[in-house]
Amino acid sequence: MLRQLRPASVLLTALTVITGLAYPFAMTGLAGIIFPAKAAGSLIERGGTVVGSSLIGQNVTGANYFHGRPSATTATDPADATKTVPAPYNAANSAGSNLGPTSAALAERVTGDLASLKAENANDPVPVDLVTTSGSGLDPDISPAAAAFQVPRIAKARKIAEDKLRDLVASHTEGRMLGILGEPRVNVLVLNLALDDLVRR
């Protein structure tokens, strides 16, 4: 039996070192050399301060900024550790809501969101990504239509011409990857930072 345990233990140790330590460290180091910004989390800085990541959405609620998709992520309730409370864009608890199409809670939330959005802009149809959560709850992007829908509200709040804001959205719209993968999208954090820059000019 010891004759069988020894080679098995050696093999287990060797594979643990190779696949559990050497390979991850090598890939992390290589990624840091080839793609330093992405390996560091695609962080965005302003004036030497990190303001967020282009990979994780932020909970923006002000009328003078573009808003992202709703987020269903939660966090532990500080008052009762056995319960959770809503915590939009909580990267430590990435998840969707798991509510199905027959869920009364989902229907109520979507109906409320639709009413709020229609109050902001009654002239255009509400884009679906402004009332639905993503599977991760951390989606940093919205569709160009979702950004355009918010232009009248932001133009009013910031006293900027709508055409200027539409041009800003267009200039920050990313196309499909390789021309065929995914959908056109706008990164909300990048767009909001560009909006602040536009106002300072």
Rank of each mutant, 00 (worst) to 15 (best):
L198M: 15
N123A: 15
P101R: 13
D80P: 08
Q4I: 15
L165M: 10
L195K: 01
L165Y: 09
A81Q: 05
E162G: 01
N59Y: 02
S143V: 12
R166W: 01
P36L: 07
T111L: 05
M177D: 15
T82P: 02
I154V: 10
A87V: 07
Q4E: 14
V60P: 02
I154N: 02
T84Y: 01
R185Q: 13
Y65D: 00
G179H: 08
S97T: 13
L106I: 03
Q150I: 09
A119I: 14
T19S: 07
G112I: 07
S143R: 09
V126T: 10
Q150D: 09
S97N: 08
S116G: 03
T73P: 01
D141T: 05
R185T: 05
P144L: 10
V128R: 13
G47C: 07
L181Q: 05
T111I: 03
N93C: 00
L15T: 15
P88W: 10
A91T: 02
S94G: 15
I160Q: 11
A161V: 14
P140S: 09
P88N: 08
G32Y: 04
E120G: 01
A145R: 10
L189R: 00
S71D: 07
V10F: 10
P88I: 10
R3S: 11
S171M: 07
I160A: 10
D163W: 06
R153W: 06
A146G: 08
A115C: 01
V151L: 08
A72I: 03
P125G: 04
D129Y: 06
D196L: 14
R69A: 07
V51A: 00
M177Q: 15
N59E: 00
V126N: 08
P140H: 09
A148P: 05
V17D: 04
A75P: 06
L99F: 02
P36D: 04
L43R: 13
R153S: 09
D196Q: 14
L30Q: 11
K159F: 05
V131F: 02
L21E: 02
S71W: 09
D113K: 09
A105H: 07
S97Y: 08
G135T: 11
I56N: 12
V10N: 02
E183P: 06
P184G: 11
A39Q: 12
Q58V: 12
E45K: 15
P86A: 14
A157K: 04
V60E: 03
L12C: 12
E174Q: 14
P184E: 06
L130T: 06
E183Y: 05
P24F: 03
D77T: 03
